[in-house]
Amino acid sequence: MAAHEIEIILNRQLADCLSIPVFITDTVGNLIFYNEPAEEVLGKRFEDTGEMPVEEWSTVFKPFDNNGNPMAPEELPLVRTLSDQYPYHKSFQIVSLKGKKQPISVTSYPIISRSGNFLGAVAIFWKQKLK
């Protein structure tokens, strides 16, 4: 079994220490790790699901812009990071598991190895206070 590169392992270890939801994907968007706060957002436990294909986990969130219009996937920070390997940040709304709209900010960044290789991406979900 091939192990992940240490840049991925260290990102997981960092995520494991944080109280904010963190999602780590491979280069095509397959979810390879999410931490405990992210489990609440996703409604699933990493121990139960393990890695999740992009087709499966990308449909969990329904994103809307601040005017209430549905957002295209290519507008989402993580999708943009996976596309061009740059960091992005955006505030928008997602429909929570209970069906409520939740304002949220997402920061995404690429994991570029010491050798300069693109290994995957990280998305951090910052919950905003409801106005």
Binding site: M1, I6, I9, L10, D16, C17
Partner: peptide, 18 residues
């Protein structure tokens, strides 16, 4: 074992496993 819970006991997540 660097991390809040030590080594992740899954070969895929162990530095140096290969």
């Amino acid at each position: 074992a660097l991390g809040s819970h030590g080594m992740i006991q899954n070969p895929k997540w162990v530095s140096g496993y290969d």
